[in-house]
Amino acid sequence: MILITGATGNVGREVVNELRKSETPFKIASHRKDSEYVYFDFENADSFRPALTGVKKLFLLRPPHIADAKKYFQPLIDIAKEVGVEHIVFLSLLGVEKNPIVPHHKIEKIIKKSGIPYTFLRPSFFMQNLISQHGEELRKEKEIYVPAGKGKTSFIDVRDIGTVTARILTENGHENKGYSLTGTEALDYYEVAEILSEELGETIKYVNPSVLQFRDKMLKKGIKKEFVTVMIGIYFTAKIGLAKKITPDLQILLGKRPITFKEFAHDYKYELV
Rank of each mutant, 00 (worst) to 15 (best):
H134Y: 14
Y145Q: 05
D160E: 09
G149P: 00
E191H: 14
Y190L: 13
K142E: 15
V164L: 10
K205G: 08
Y145L: 14
L219P: 01
L181M: 02
K205Q: 14
E137N: 14
I156K: 05
D160K: 12
I144D: 11
P209N: 10
T170F: 03
D188T: 08
A166G: 09
D160H: 11
S210C: 10
E143I: 11
V146C: 08
V158Y: 04
L181H: 00
P147G: 11
Q133Y: 10
V158L: 04
T203G: 03
Y145P: 04
T170M: 06
M218V: 05
E136C: 00
E198L: 12
S180G: 01
I156G: 06
R139N: 14
K217T: 14
G162E: 05
T184N: 11
H174Q: 08
I168H: 04
V207T: 15
E199H: 09
D188Q: 06
T165Y: 01
I204W: 05
E136L: 12
V164A: 11
G183M: 02
G151V: 01
E191Q: 15
N172D: 14
R139H: 05
S154D: 02
A166K: 08
E136G: 06
K140Q: 15
T184Q: 08
L219H: 03
A148Y: 01
G135D: 05
L219C: 01
G178V: 04
K150Q: 06
E141R: 15
G178A: 15
L138D: 04
S132N: 12
N208S: 13
V207D: 10
I161P: 04
F214G: 13
K152V: 02
K205A: 14
E185K: 14
F155R: 09
Q133W: 08
T165E: 06
A193W: 07
T184H: 01
Y189L: 15
Y179L: 00
P147Y: 06
Y145K: 09
R139V: 15
P147W: 03
I156F: 07
S132V: 11
T165N: 11
R159Y: 00
E194W: 06
E202Q: 13
D160L: 09
G178W: 01
A186K: 03
G183Y: 00
Q133C: 13
F214P: 12
S197W: 03
L219G: 05
I161H: 06
D157N: 15
R215P: 00
L187C: 06
V158Q: 09
S154L: 04
G162I: 03
E137Q: 11
E191M: 12
I195D: 05
V211K: 10
P209D: 08
I156P: 06
H174K: 07
V207C: 10
N172V: 01
Q133I: 07
Y179F: 13
Y179I: 03
T165D: 08
H174R: 05
R167S: 14
K177C: 10
E141S: 13
E185T: 10
G162W: 00
G149Q: 00
S210N: 07
T184M: 07
E191L: 10
F214W: 07
